[in-house]
Amino acid sequence: MKLVYVFDAYCGWSHGFSATLAELTRRHPELPVEVVSGGLFTGARRVPIREFGYVQGSNAKIAELTGATFGQAYEHLIADGSFVMDSEAAARGLAALRQAAPARAAELAVAMQEAFYRDGLSLSDADTYRTVARAAGLDADAVAAAFAAPGAGKAARADFRRSAEYGVQGFPTLLAVDGDRATVLAVGHATADQVDQRLSALGRTR
Rank of each mutant, 00 (worst) to 15 (best):
E75C: 05
A44H: 02
I78V: 12
A182M: 04
A201T: 05
A201R: 08
A73H: 12
T42F: 03
A95I: 15
A95R: 08
Y5A: 06
A140P: 10
R118Y: 07
E165R: 11
D8P: 02
E107V: 02
L65K: 14
Q169T: 14
L123I: 10
A79T: 09
A19E: 13
H28F: 06
S124Q: 12
A158Y: 02
M112S: 07
T131H: 10
G120D: 10
S58G: 14
K154A: 15
V6S: 11
T42G: 06
A89S: 12
D178M: 07
S14Q: 10
S82D: 14
G81I: 04
G81P: 01
G43T: 02
G43M: 08
W13H: 03
G57A: 03
G71T: 07
V184F: 14
D80N: 08
E23C: 00
G151M: 11
D86A: 09
L40A: 08
T42D: 04
T25D: 04
G170I: 07
H28I: 06
F70V: 11
L138F: 10
S37G: 11
V6E: 08
Y117S: 05
A111W: 10
P102N: 06
A126L: 09
E30G: 04
Q99R: 13
F17G: 02
A63S: 15
R206P: 00
T69G: 14
L24S: 01
E34C: 07
L175T: 04
L3A: 00
A155T: 14
A140S: 14
I78S: 00
L185G: 03
R130A: 13
L185S: 06
A146E: 09
V6W: 04
A100C: 14
A73K: 08
L31R: 00
T25A: 06
T69D: 11
S14F: 09
Y10E: 04
L185V: 03
H28W: 05
E51G: 03
P102G: 04
A149G: 15
L24F: 05
I49V: 13
T42L: 12
A144I: 08
A158N: 10
L121D: 00
D180C: 02
P172K: 11
K2W: 09
Y166K: 03
A44N: 01
Y5C: 03
G153C: 13
A135Y: 07
G93E: 15
R181G: 01
A73Q: 05
A95Y: 08
D125L: 05
E64H: 14
G188H: 07
R134Q: 14
L202M: 09
A44F: 02
M85H: 01
A142S: 14
R45G: 06
R161W: 09
S18D: 15
A109F: 08
A95F: 05
G120E: 01
R181V: 11
G120S: 06
S18P: 02
N59M: 13
T69Q: 12
H15K: 13
Q56G: 11
H28S: 04
K154E: 15
I78D: 00
R130C: 08
D180E: 13
A142T: 07
P150Q: 14
A190N: 07
A135I: 05
A106R: 00
S37F: 05
W13V: 03
F41D: 00
A68H: 10
G167E: 05
L185R: 00
V4Y: 00
